[in-house]
Computed example of a mutant assay.
Amino acid sequence: MASDLRRPLVGLLLAVLALTLLTTAPAAPAGARVADGVDDVVGLPRGTDADYQLGGADATPRHVGIVARDRTARPAAGRYNICYVNGFQTQPNEKRFWRERWDLVLKRGGKPVVDANWGEWLLDLRTPAKRQRLAAIVGRWTAGCARDGFDAVEYDNLDSFTRSRGLLDRADALAFARLLVERAHDVGLAVAQKNLAGYDGTRIGFDFAVAESCAQWDECGAYVADFGRDVVMVEYRAADFREACRGYGRTHPVVLRDLALRPSYTPRFC
């Protein structure tokens, strides 16, 4: 009889244990949201600072929960990591790689079209076939970011068409961006829009924005209008940093960095 009485008690204890495990299971990073309609993709955490470490990995203060690093670097342990990929232009140190794929580099008169500010060649996005081939290349880099443990990817230079001397247009850029967003989501990464303030990238699947010098160019409000609180702001001049902090420091991560993004530099936060 005592054995019969214990059976319901054991069952009740097992049920309570199962409920406890369900309610205490690991969740997404604090404040994070899952990208709408995309499985296994974690969006940008809120209520934390961000650092922009593209020039080399550096020690990360405890209050910084978001770190952006180049795709060749390792992610920062215990942080939300954004993988930097130059999606629309070439890196200056990768000229040999692109010479072997010369037909994918945008040219005028047989010479590459160059972003003069950074010495980067523009990629040729003019045809669906070239966009697919480029997406396969950038997609492999993106898959590498996922394997290395990054949580998100930012594709730089969405606005490269504005520097193409009329050879590319917005439609070319957005068609290619759609392919890159799909590749990132397929491997479980959130995707940041980089550049082209005023274009609502959520329409093609961008999950958040990384806004460089948005206070300097009066663009922060445009990004916030489209992405709300899901904007990381990076400034390079003290006056612009102070302005961004006044306008958005209570709601958004804002960091002051040096233009060279050197690891030896000490960033400032709002």
Score class of each variant (00 low, 15 high):
Leu13Asp: 00
Asn86Cys: 06
Arg99Thr: 10
Thr266Phe: 06
Ala68Ser: 14
Arg108Lys: 12
Ala152Asp: 02
Val16Ser: 01
Asp230Val: 06
Pro263Asn: 11
Tyr199Phe: 14
Arg165Lys: 14
Pro128Lys: 11
Arg46Leu: 04
Gly119Val: 13
Cys270Ile: 12
Pro267Lys: 15
Arg165Glu: 10
Thr202Gly: 05
Val41Trp: 14
Gly11Ile: 05
Ala28Asp: 05
Cys270Val: 13
Gly198Tyr: 04
Ile82Val: 15
Phe150Met: 08
Val41Tyr: 11
Tyr199Arg: 04
Gly37Lys: 09
Cys270Ser: 07
Leu134Tyr: 13
Val105Asn: 03
Val113Tyr: 09
Phe88Glu: 11
Ala32Tyr: 13
Ala177Phe: 00
Arg6Trp: 15
Ala260Ile: 07
Asp103Glu: 12
Asp207Asn: 01
Leu19Val: 08
Leu106Tyr: 04
Val231Tyr: 00
Ala25Asp: 01
Val224Met: 01
Gly201Ser: 04
Phe88Lys: 12
Arg74Ile: 05
Arg99Glu: 06
Asp40Ser: 12
Trp121Ala: 10
Asp186Thr: 12
Ser164Tyr: 06
Arg203His: 04
Gly110Tyr: 07
Asn86Gln: 07
Glu100Tyr: 08
Arg46Phe: 01
Ala197Met: 06
Asn93Asp: 14
Thr48Asp: 04
Gly198Thr: 06
Asp103Lys: 09
Tyr155Met: 11
Asn86Trp: 08
Ala15Phe: 02
Gly139Phe: 00
Glu219Val: 00
Thr127Asn: 05
Asp70Cys: 03
Asp103Ile: 06
Asn93His: 15
Phe150Lys: 05
Arg268Tyr: 01
Thr162Cys: 01
Asp200Phe: 10
Asp230His: 13
Gly139Met: 03
Phe269Glu: 04
Gly247Arg: 14
Asp207His: 02
Arg178Ser: 14
Tyr80Cys: 09
Cys145Ile: 11
Val231Trp: 00
Thr127Gln: 05
Val64Glu: 01
Glu154Thr: 14
Arg74Lys: 13
Thr24Trp: 10
Val105Lys: 06
Phe97Ile: 09
Pro267Arg: 15
Leu54Pro: 00
Ser213Gln: 13
Gly11Met: 05
Pro253Glu: 07
Thr142Cys: 02
Phe176Val: 07
Asn81Ser: 12
Leu13Ala: 14
Gly109Val: 09
Arg140Asp: 01
Ala177Asp: 02
Trp118Phe: 15
Cys270Phe: 10
Gly139Lys: 03
Val231Gln: 04
Lys107Asp: 00
Val113Thr: 04
Asp226Phe: 09
Thr60Phe: 07
Val254Lys: 06
Leu44Tyr: 08
Arg108Phe: 03
Arg257Tyr: 02
Ala143Tyr: 02
Trp121Ile: 02
Ile204Glu: 03
Glu243Val: 06
Ala25Phe: 10
Thr20Tyr: 14
Pro26Asp: 08
Gly149Ile: 07
Tyr236Leu: 10
Pro75Met: 13
Asp200Cys: 05
Val181Glu: 02
Pro92Leu: 15
Trp118Ala: 12
Tyr80Pro: 07
Asp58Ala: 15
Phe88Asp: 10
Val85Asp: 11
Glu235Val: 08
Asp151Ser: 12
Arg183Cys: 03
Asp159Trp: 00
Leu19His: 00
Gly47Phe: 14
Leu17Met: 11
Asp218Tyr: 13
Glu243Met: 12
His252Glu: 00
Leu5Ala: 09
Ala27Asp: 02
Ile82Asp: 06
Val10Glu: 00
Ser264Cys: 05
Asn157Met: 14
